[in-house]
Design a protein around this nucleic acid. Structure first.
Ligand SMILES: NC(=O)c1ccc[n+]([C@@H]2O[C@H](COP(=O)([O-])OP(=O)(O)OC[C@H]3O[C@@H](n4cnc5c(N)ncnc54)[C@H](O)[C@@H]3O)[C@@H](O)[C@H]2O)c1
Ligand SMILES: NC(=O)c1ccc[n+]([C@@H]2O[C@H](COP(=O)([O-])OP(=O)(O)OC[C@H]3O[C@@H](n4cnc5c(N)ncnc54)[C@H](O)[C@@H]3O)[C@@H](O)[C@H]2O)c1
Lengths: 220, 220
DNA sequence: AATATATAAAGATATTTTTCTTTATTCTCA
DNA sequence: TGAGAATAAAGAAAAATATCTTTATATATT
């Protein structure tokens, strides 16, 4: 099978993940600068504001395709457009969220995602009392409805904010319904087919880092 | 100043951050295994269940101080205790949360943190309507009260879930009040003194990774 | 117009993290 | 009791990432 393909298809650029993770920060900053009226910004300035290494900023900027002017910096307008394009803020991805609890509600309500390329169009739960309700205009359905809706609409992202015990079965469902990427907030390792993108957001992990550093500081 | 110290103090072990971030996953798994009645678990088994490399699991386990038995694996009881100790789940850290909105409420309500070494003891906001209310038994105060309470209690962690615009000023306050670590959920880069630990949880970054991967998949 | 300077960009190096190899132990099963 | 097999542990190699260095360019200043 492998030997039949001419070469590995090679994703078009393969931007390093740490770079991708920094992109939203750049965009946030550049938007603020433009609102302030700044026409240009240099990599060293960006670096200082975000606490990064200047050359790293230059390297990251290279991935946006924007070329800076020596001694002037990058055009903020050009940068903003390039970053928005890079992050896919134009082509809107639609998402389903399963588990309309506290965290799920926070995500649904959050305006930021709308202008960030993702729109949560429906939520699902197993709690009867939530059926038919709305969270910021987003309807909450019974999980039974999921199949029907997902096949009709073109939903690419599935968000899991159910308790840990239910996460795997929800993921299995999402795979069946044709979801392309799963954004998982439950503290479990999901098992899904290779082609499905899984992004875990383990809030615990961040807490662990904090507590570990606190402990280190104490014993030094 | 530097030249006076014999050598760099060298934190006692300096566990790699990726290792620290995996520790909660291990603990979650080991707890589940113990409940199931398993007395031992081997690194390869853990690796398979969490989708990790077996030798990486072995290396991570080494940091807990637990020694495994050849052909048997690690004692689940020993592992659980060691992981809990490593993650500081025993010595309880107390935290203040500022910004009792949607996300803040979700964090406060979340039971998981209580058994994870951190207890949110009070929340603060600028919205008058929230003063005097409680979220799952955690009182919400005016931000004015912050100083007074923080100095009396021994609060080591400050959680910021305010809008981005208010985050820096809240961080400044936290520094003044003697907070040791800041857990920041607002999408901004905080400027604080060196000795203050800052952990950013930029939910945007995860979304960026998903959308980037979706885009790559499409163009391949 | 000439010079000094800040900058982008490309290349090289260093560091961190993961994966691969090897070795030795000890438990299981014949 | 002994051969075989699965494993932990330590070391080496590889990969990914971040930092440092150099070079060339364009711009503001004199
Ligand atoms: N709240 C936080 O701050 C936080 C932090 C870290 C991790 N998490 C994780 O996020 C997840 C949700 O946390 P939460 O605090 O919002 O919990 P929650 O109890 O408020 O919400 C869970 C929701 O999922 C629904 N649900 C349960 N089983 C379901 C199923 N099989 N299908 C569909 N819906 C189902 C419940 O009815 C409920 O509405 C948990 O896995 C938790 O570990 C939350
Ligand atoms: N909700 C999410 O899913 C999500 C996702 C990513 C990032 N965030 C970030 O988390 C933060 C909070 O988001 P949210 O959705 O909970 O917003 P929210 O509006 O629900 O909550 C913000 C709260 O902060 C309070 N506040 C405002 N200014 C304050 C100040 N100076 N001091 C103290 N309190 C103040 C408000 O009264 C409000 O209660 C934002 O910075 C947002 O960008 C949220």
């Amino acid at each position: 099978m492998e030997s039949l393909t001419i070469t590995t298809p090679k994703k078009q650029q393969a931007v390093p993940e740490p770079t991708v993770r920094r992109m939203p920060q750049y965009l946030h900053l550049v938007r603020a600068l433009r609102e302030k009226g700044d026409m240009y910004v240099s990599a060293p300035v960006i670096a200082r504001m975000l606490g990064l290494d200047p050359t790293q900023v230059v390297k990251d900027m290279a991935y946006t395709g924007v070329s800076g002017k020596t001694r002037i910096g990058f055009s903020t307008e050009e940068l903003q457009l390039a970053l928005e394009d890079f992050l896919g803020y134009n082509r809107k991805h639609e998402a389903f969220l399963v588990g309309a609890g506290y965290l799920g509600s926070a995500l649904i309500q959050y305006q930021g995602f709308r202008e960030a390329g993702m729109k949560i169009v429906a939520a699902f739960d197993t709690d009867k009392r939530k059926f038919g309700t709305e969270i910021q205009g987003v309807p909450v359905f019974s999980l039974e409805k999921f199949r029907d809706l997902a096949s009709r609409l073109h939903i690419s992202i599935g968000i899991i904010t159910t308790p840990a015990g239910a996460a795997q079965s929800v993921a299995d469902l999402m795979v069946v319904w044709g979801i392309k990427a799963i954004w998982n907030f439950a503290p479990v390792a999901l098992k899904v087919p290779d082609q499905i993108i899984v992004q875990d957001t383990h809030i615990y992990a961040n807490l662990a880092v904090i507590i570990n550093k606190l402990g280190q500081q104490k014993n030094s």
